[in-house]
Design a protein around this nucleic acid. Structure first.
Lengths: 211, 211
DNA sequence: ACGACGCGTTGAGCGAGGTCAACGCATCGG
DNA sequence: CCGATGCGTTGACCTCGCTCAACGCGTCGT
């Protein structure tokens, strides 16, 4: 794990910031001066159309990076979903770091490719799946994310609102809500509370992510 | 331009292949043994669902790379759209090349980030734009691609079929066809032939890519 | 020369998901 | 204690894009 190898180096050049739900980290088009890492909380990345339609391109959890793209300006906006702590690093400093530690660049390349693969999977979702399949796919991927972060049980927290889920899946709030209800009525999921999901049979839910 | 800097090195380790329209370069899930560069023709990248629904995640033109992702298996399938020539390179050789020439890794990182930005733009299209906006966005991006490759005039060739366009934009063949007709009737585009597009006013067409 | 086939276009009807509206239920400030 | 506000759910209705079908046209192979 490279991230931990260079903690001391990072501590010299990193600053920590706290943000509140709904607060902006940066906006699409801003000059990309800083790269960030989420140390606590959840963040949404999104793009807007002029009339306000929003597409969320990703959700970030603790450990995830944002603003790493080697570009002049940010390609998307970023906002906190929950209370969040971020580490911030000047991109210039990041360049220096990459000179000193070439394996870090390799790691960044891997991260970019993982994001690309996720983006392509999401295109398949948005372009070709039904509402039910999209919601099922989303829940499975959130489950995997939660499972990586510890407990192997099939119950987890959804930090984002129905509106965020809708804008991530290319649906409306109402359709997301109705689909949750339908999945619950079919016994594919349980909803102990609005933001808590329990999955009795992962295999069965997974089967309804396509075909 | 790094690509041209190392042409001699590449010639030692690269093999050239020709493929015909519809022919497969590799399939999603195959072991990723080779990286490729398109030297002639056009290629489509896509993912399939079990029931055959297809999402095209990108079109490649001469100069574009495929199979670069640092992953064990390919994340998508690749097929020729037209007759095409490809250079093929063992990923092991690519690794060696990266040792010898660190700037190449930087370039690959840039390429991955450009693809990521394009993927995010496409998510916005698929999740939040209407059929007309999607087709207009697609035509504008194809125009830009063509314009980069030479002539500044607003007429260009579409190498892919209506079916490919539909699967790229998350629509049906019929909707793509109807939308082309509608754009023509509104004077936003001209269709000298089925696979040839002319854009009288780029600004006007661009305006109809959103809001 | 001619039928078969692939591709694109057009029309008619339908349905998944969007829109609009009402309502329940927390949380919050006065 | 109570109205206001925000979020989620549900219902009724509508529309955009899908489905199914017919047809035109160019390119094959025979």
């Amino acid at each position: 794990m490279i991230e931990t190898d260079c903690v001391e180096v990072l501590d010299r050049i990193v600053t920590h910031t706290q943000i509140r739900p709904g607060q902006t980290v940066f906006e699409e088009g801003d000059e990309a001066k800083y790269a960030y890492n989420v140390s606590r909380g959840h963040v949404r990345l999104f793009k807007l159309l002029q009339d306000g339609r929003r597409q969320i391109t990703g959700f970030l959890a603790p450990g995830d990076f944002l603003g790493l793209a080697a570009r002049q300006t940010y390609a998307y906006s970023a906002e906190a979903i929950t209370d969040a702590d971020l580490c911030r690093l000047k991109v210039g400093e990041l360049e220096n770091l990459l000179e000193e530690m070439p394996p870090v660049r390799e790691r960044l390349y891997e991260i970019a490719n993982d994001e690309l693969a996720a983006a392509q999977e999401q295109m398949l979702c948005l372009g070709r799946k039904t509402a039910k399949e999209r919601v099922a796919s989303f829940l499975i991927s959130q489950l995997r994310h939660a499972a990586d972060c510890g407990d192997g049980i099939a119950e987890f927290e959804l930090p984002m609102s129905r509106s965020d889920i809708a804008d991530y899946l290319g649906l409306t709030i109402e359709t997301v809500s109705r689909t949750f209800t339908a999945l619950r009525e079919e016994g594919l999921i349980e909803l102990p509370s609005t933001h808590r999901i329990s999955i009795p049979s992962i295999a069965t839910l997974e089967a309804s992510t396509e075909a």
